[in-house]
């Protein structure tokens, strides 16, 4: 009896504590936007979320310097704003929360635009595109999706490639694996005719595996990588849109591609397969 009572008391108190948290003052929209362009300039630093462990997009060299395709863009943004850049290292699943809790002003971490994410954050103009690619042995290279009819294809579970072939190309038999390492080993062991994944990973992989070729470079709809900005921060979003247009005119992304991505992708990939020049 005593026990029941105290359980009840605890849950009541807990509920009370939660409701205090719930009715706590929400920052009103009109109250200053902490991540507006002028606020960032006044602060003198822009906080940008990047990856620390995804070469060649965002990673750290052995001397401890942040580098990569996204990081180069981040530094350029800082330069054009006239502020310092403070990098905040995030994981894939903390990118949305980092924006919403004002830990960062912008996310430049290989952030793919999806309808679900658009509900939670705003995206500026995309600066990179990825798509599904198909890699196969050079001896029996697959160059069209129709060649895969009735054959086996390797994919990793949960990827856009798996999704695309399950819904759009039903004539293909899928072999599903759990990790990148497993799927590439399966291809090397000749378990299937080809392997499908994000083309940016495949380009990097064939660089070190000369007997294979990305026969289909793009398949299905393109997916775009764009700067993530807190929902409703129109001020910074429109600044960033202009910034990307300006950088495109200056050929910044082509240089960024050559500096950071080309060494990983090899020469049979053109910058236009990855970057957006419009």
């Amino acid at each position: 009896m005593m026990k029941k009572k105290s359980v009840l008391k605890f849950s009541l108190a807990f509920a009370a504590a939660l409701s205090v948290a719930a009715i706590a003052p929400q920052p009103t929209k009109a109250a200053s936007n902490a991540s507006s362009v002028s606020a960032i300039k006044k602060r003198g630093t822009i906080k940008i979320a990047v990856f620390g462990d995804l070469p060649p997009y965002g990673w750290v060299t052995k001397s401890g310097k942040r580098t990569g395709y996204d990081v180069a863009l981040a530094r350029q943004v800082g330069k054009d704003l006239g502020t310092k850049v403070k990098f905040v290292q995030v994981n894939a699943d903390s990118r949305v929360d980092a924006l919403n809790s004002n830990k960062v002003d912008m996310v430049l971490a290989n952030f793919t635009v999806t309808p679900e994410r658009k509900q939670a954050v705003s995206f500026a103009k995309p600066y990179m595109k990825v798509s599904i690619g198909v890699v196969s042995p050079k001896k029996k290279v697959i160059t069209k999706a129709s060649q895969l009819k009735g054959k086996s294809l390797i994919v990793t579970k949960g990827t856009t490639a798996e999704n695309y072939f399950t819904t759009k190309q039903k004539g293909v038999t899928l072999q599903k694996y759990d990790s990148k390492t497993q799927q590439f080993n399966a291809l090397k062991n000749g378990r299937a005719a080809a392997l499908a994944d994000d083309n940016s990973y495949l380009f990097a992989w064939v660089k070190n595996h000369k007997n294979y070729k990305v026969g289909i470079k793009t398949l299905g709809p393109n997916q775009y990588i764009a700067p993530g900005i807190k929902k409703g921060n129109k001020n910074l979003t429109s600044w960033m849109n202009k910034e990307i247009t300006k950088l495109n005119k200056k050929g910044f992304f082509k240089k960024d591609y050559n500096d950071n991505l080309k060494p990983y992708f090899g020469s049979d990939v053109k910058p236009s397969d990855i970057i957006i020049t419009k």
Partner: peptide
């Protein structure tokens, strides 16, 4: 006692997320 039970029952990961990502949204502190 409530304080003790709260910090003992809620996993540390959840506490860290709560204080880093969730509470700042409501209380406007960073």
């Amino acid at each position: 006692r409530i304080y003790l039970e709260f910090f003992r029952i809620v996993p540390t990961v959840v506490l860290l997320f709560l204080f880093y990502y969730i509470l700042p949204k409501n209380f406007n502190m960073n």
